[in-house]
Simulated scan of single mutants.
Amino acid sequence: MKVLALGLVLSALFAGSAFAQGDAAAGANVFKKCASCHAVGEGAKNKVGPELNELFGRVAGTAPDFKYSKAMTDAGAGGLVWSSETLHEFLTKPKDFVKGTKMSFPGLKEPADLDNIVAYLQTFSTAPAEGAAPADPAAAPAQ
């Protein structure tokens, strides 16, 4: 009986996480919207946007050999670290989340698309999607 109670408590805790688990295969399809500017996987290189391997736990504006907007580097300097939570917020409306970003993509509107693309990007990162401390982008100077 105690094991059952413990299982129910743990289930409730995990069910109450901030974001649902996404489908990485479906996220690969959503990523097609991003692929003209971003790359992932073996041999990925920066394009118009930075390559997105090892994105989780990365401080915003710090991918090697990519020229970021001042707004994005300032957001990183202010504590913005990419996690499931921060990616969900950013990918909903990038220009609202990091005012002054060069990213022209208007955002993803469907919650399932957000969950799925985060799950897909997670397959290219060894750090957990959760656990990177989210930052308050409003605290970072915007340019």
Score class of each variant (00 low, 15 high):
5 A>N: 11
5 A>M: 13
9 V>N: 01
10 L>P: 05
11 S>D: 04
12 A>E: 05
12 A>R: 03
14 F>C: 00
15 A>F: 05
16 G>T: 00
20 A>Y: 14
20 A>C: 14
21 Q>N: 12
23 D>H: 04
24 A>G: 14
25 A>V: 15
26 A>N: 02
27 G>S: 04
28 A>H: 10
29 N>H: 08
30 V>C: 02
31 F>I: 00
32 K>C: 04
32 K>Y: 08
32 K>A: 06
32 K>E: 13
34 C>D: 07
35 A>L: 12
35 A>T: 15
35 A>K: 14
37 C>I: 09
37 C>E: 05
38 H>F: 02
38 H>K: 07
38 H>E: 01
39 A>V: 09
40 V>N: 06
41 G>V: 11
41 G>I: 08
43 G>D: 02
43 G>P: 09
44 A>T: 04
46 N>S: 08
46 N>K: 09
46 N>I: 12
47 K>C: 03
48 V>R: 13
48 V>G: 02
49 G>L: 03
51 E>S: 09
52 L>K: 03
54 E>M: 12
54 E>L: 07
55 L>Y: 02
55 L>M: 05
59 V>M: 13
60 A>E: 00
63 A>N: 03
65 D>G: 15
66 F>K: 03
67 K>N: 10
68 Y>L: 07
69 S>D: 02
72 M>A: 15
73 T>H: 06
73 T>P: 01
74 D>P: 04
74 D>N: 08
74 D>C: 00
75 A>E: 00
76 G>V: 01
76 G>F: 01
78 G>D: 05
79 G>C: 10
79 G>D: 12
80 L>H: 10
80 L>Y: 05
81 V>Q: 04
81 V>K: 03
82 W>V: 07
83 S>F: 02
83 S>T: 06
83 S>R: 02
84 S>V: 04
84 S>F: 04
85 E>C: 10
85 E>Q: 14
87 L>C: 04
87 L>Q: 03
88 H>Q: 11
89 E>V: 06
89 E>W: 12
91 L>E: 11
92 T>L: 12
93 K>A: 12
93 K>N: 13
94 P>R: 14
95 K>L: 06
95 K>A: 11
97 F>I: 07
97 F>W: 13
97 F>V: 08
99 K>S: 11
101 T>I: 07
102 K>I: 12
102 K>H: 11
106 P>M: 09
106 P>F: 09
107 G>N: 02
109 K>S: 01
110 E>C: 02
110 E>Q: 10
110 E>V: 08
113 D>K: 01
114 L>C: 03
114 L>A: 04
115 D>F: 01
116 N>L: 06
116 N>W: 09
119 A>V: 01
119 A>M: 06
119 A>F: 09
120 Y>S: 05
120 Y>K: 03
121 L>H: 06
121 L>D: 01
121 L>K: 05
121 L>C: 02
122 Q>A: 12
122 Q>F: 12
124 F>C: 09
124 F>Q: 10
125 S>Q: 06
126 T>D: 14
127 A>T: 10
128 P>K: 00
129 A>I: 08
130 E>M: 11
130 E>S: 15
130 E>D: 14
131 G>N: 08
131 G>I: 01
132 A>L: 04
133 A>M: 08
135 A>F: 06
137 P>M: 01
140 A>G: 06
140 A>Q: 05
142 A>H: 12
